[in-house]
């Protein structure tokens, strides 16, 4: 009895310690986040001189106005959502079956396949040959150019494989085979439903990748109507930041003046753009969190 009391005291201390640790983590992370929010609506002068350090000062909405007055922004949002959804679905369709196959110890040749895939993590032909492949496939300036060249990632396949390997009990597979269940059925009907956490993680990793990507669109897209959000935001930023380097050809007194007046909003926009592009994807996260609950899987297996 005494022992149990002591231990629960120890547990309490441990729990309190955990809470304190998390609270510290929260504060450390929260501060810069609030700073960004505040900086996006404070006067740039206050931000750069260090007067604004927590709460907004000399509130101005000019940054957001500039972003949202841009007619391309909504189209950009729409494109990004389409690319993200379609792209992520394709990623999952390619990654999960492959990762599952690689996780099976009775899959002859899996080490060869693994090596085949891993090698691409290190050796790449570079920008130009890849561009030529995309071009020869006729994908330039199409949605396919943003989706097919990133249809899978080695890293994610390996992570998913590890998950399957360590959490899907071998007994399950054998029992299913004895019942006459084919591999396809096994994967679709049993493995996938049990693997909600990794599906959620993969969807998140790939989805965020698509959401944040701009390099593919920069290289492969020509028409502005197809630009994703990140490209549109980049265009806005570039225009603002031309003031940074005002030397050289093509600069006249008038442009210098215009750039100077824009430099004011440039720093505002820098912060605003983060908020605009990040909020939607952050909002998705809480919905995925429920898949990370301990014991989901085993519970359903046994139950």
């Amino acid at each position: 009895m005494v022992k149990a009391m002591q231990e629960s005291k120890g547990d309490k201390m441990f729990l309190i310690g955990t809470y304190i640790y998390l609270c510290i983590a929260l504060v450390i992370v929260l501060y810069p986040l609030i700073y960004i929010l505040s900086a996006s609506i404070s006067s740039p002068q206050a931000v750069n001189s260090g007067e604004m350090w927590l709460f907004p000062k000399d509130i101005t909405w000019a940054g957001y106005e500039l972003v949202f007055n841009n007619p391309k922004i909504w189209n950009g949002y729409l494109n990004t959502i389409i690319y993200t959804v379609v792209g992520t679905l394709l990623n999952l369709a390619v990654t999960l079956p492959a990762a599952y196959a690689l996780s099976r110890s009775d899959f002859i040749g899996r080490n060869w396949f693994m090596g085949f895939i891993l090698l691409t993590m290190f050796f790449s032909g570079g920008l130009v040959p890849t561009y030529l492949v995309v071009k020869n496939l006729g994908l330039i300036d199409t949605m396919g150019a943003l989706i097919l060249p990133v249809a899978a990632s080695v890293w994610n396949i390996v992570v998913a494989r590890t998950f399957f390997q360590s959490t899907i009990p071998k007994e399950l597979q054998e029992a299913a085979h004895i019942d006459g269940c084919t591999n396809i059925k096994l994967f679709w009907k049993i493995v996938l439903p049990l693997s909600a956490p990794i599906v959620a993680v993969m969807a998140l990793f790939y989805g965020v990748g698509h959401w944040n990507s701009y390099f593919s669109s920069l290289i492969y897209l020509n028409s502005e109507s197809k630009y994703p959000l990140q490209m549109v935001l980049r265009q806005i930023l570039v225009l603002q930041e031309m003031s940074a380097e005002m030397n050289g050809a093509g600069v006249s007194g008038e442009i210098a003046q215009a750039m100077n007046s824009k430099a004011e909003t440039a720093s505002l926009i820098k912060y605003g753009v983060i908020v605009v592009s990040t909020l939607p994807i952050i909002a998705v996260y809480p919905f995925l969190q429920r898949y990370f609950v301990q014991g989901v899987m085993i519970g359903s297996v046994k139950g």
């Binding site: 130009v128 561009y131 030529l132 290289i219 980049r234 265009q235 570039v238 031309m242």
Partner: peptide, 19 residues
């Protein structure tokens, strides 16, 4: 017009020559 954003123009220019 085949335009490329000013900040990525260099990259595009090289791809044009390469392809």
């Amino acid at each position: 017009y085949k335009n490329a954003p000013k900040d990525s123009f260099e990259t595009k220019k090289n791809l044009v020559f390469a392809s």
